[in-house]
């Protein structure tokens, strides 16, 4: 069989799959730009985002916060952890897919191994024996895959229900909903268990980190600006691994140069006076 013939068969049989596989490459080709400089914020929808942020706060105050504090106080920690483990385990095949799309072979192997161990010895993912063996989850998502393929971060978004995000991360979250091979294997009534675990896990986290979230949302002078600042810094750190994109000192040009080294800035440097 000649090579062109083989390629033609491959293309005709697997056209749809190839198109999906090539999508990141196409996106990469379209986008020359990379992430914004550290400390830089791209927020063209700020007025709308601020209104949505106030909506999120109202929902949090009325529903999410009371429910989550009650949940964290009444449900034993062991049960909360099992729900969280179950949810993570269910999402693990999607981590593997994203690891492969990001060409992170070791992460893909670790996550695949975790899925096997935790689904069997961890009783369907309720427990996390793999972490006790020294292999904690290596979470990954399609937002990270888009970042890997040099899709720019895009505008900052305040999304109802979800909370802080960016154009790239929101696209990633939507894609992640379709990316998990396990989701296609689970029939409809059982799928509600997964959704329920997701909701409970979120309640548990909101309850457990109530102090941090409350201080951010209700004690900040400008909770919108502070949420945006915290989300972007943390997300850029997550995506760049070592924190290079978030390097507070990597920025030597532009208006944010003063964020880098407080000592080199003439008006910020008391020793220079």
């Amino acid at each position: 069989m000649s090579r062109p013939g083989f390629l033609r068969i491959l293309f005709t049989r697997h056209r749809a799959k190839l198109a999906v596989a090539a999508l990141p490459l196409v996106l990469a080709a379209c986008s020359g730009s990379v992430d914004p400089a550290p400390g830089e914020i791209n927020d063209p929808y700020e007025p709308l985002n601020r209104r949505l942020h106030e909506g999120l706060k109202r929902t949090d105050r009325a529903v999410l916060r009371p429910a989550s504090v009650g949940y964290a106080q009444t449900v034993p920690r062991g049960v909360q952890d099992s729900i969280s483990n179950f949810r993570t385990n269910f999402a693990t095949p999607a981590y593997v897919v994203n690891d492969m799309l990001q060409m992170q072979g070791e992460d893909a192997l670790v996550n695949a191994y975790r899925f096997l161990v935790n689904t069997t010895f961890g009783l369907g993912g309720l427990f996390d024996p793999a972490a006790q063996l020294g292999l904690p989850a290596r979470k990954s998502d399609f937002g990270g895959t888009l970042h890997f393929w040099r899709v720019p971060e895009g505008a900052y978004l305040s999304v109802p229900i979800i909370g802080p995000s960016t154009e790239r991360d929101l696209a990633g979250r939507i894609a992640d909903g379709f990316l998990n091979p396990l989701a296609y294997a689970v029939p409809t009534p059982e799928r509600y268990v997964v959704t329920g675990a997701g909701v409970l896990d979120r309640l548990g986290k909101r309850g457990r980190y109530a102090g941090t979230v409350d201080s951010l949302l209700y004690d900040s002078a400008d909770s919108y600006a502070q949420t945006r600042n915290t989300y972007l810094q943390n997300r850029r750190y997550e995506l760049s691994g070592t924190g290079a994109a978030l390097d507070p000192y990597a920025d030597t040009t532009g208006a944010n140069a003063t964020d880098a080294d407080p000592y080199t800035d003439p008006y910020l440097d008391p020793y220079a006076e």
């Binding site: 400390g39 900040s220 002078a221 400008d222 600006a225 502070q226 600042n229 915290t230 810094q233 943390n234 850029r236 750190y237 997550e238 924190g243 978030l246 507070p248 964020d259 407080p262 000592y263 440097d269 020793y271």
Partner: peptide, 29 residues
């Protein structure tokens, strides 16, 4: 940094979130 004359820390980052940038946002607001 020791620009003050002795070694002192001027920022602390928790999972990439800088205390100095956080407080800068707060003080600015």
């Amino acid at each position: 940094s020791d620009k003050s004359g002795r070694p002192l820390f001027f920022d602390m980052l928790i999972e990439g979130v800088s205390m100095r940038l956080t407080e800068r946002t707060e003080i600015g607001a």
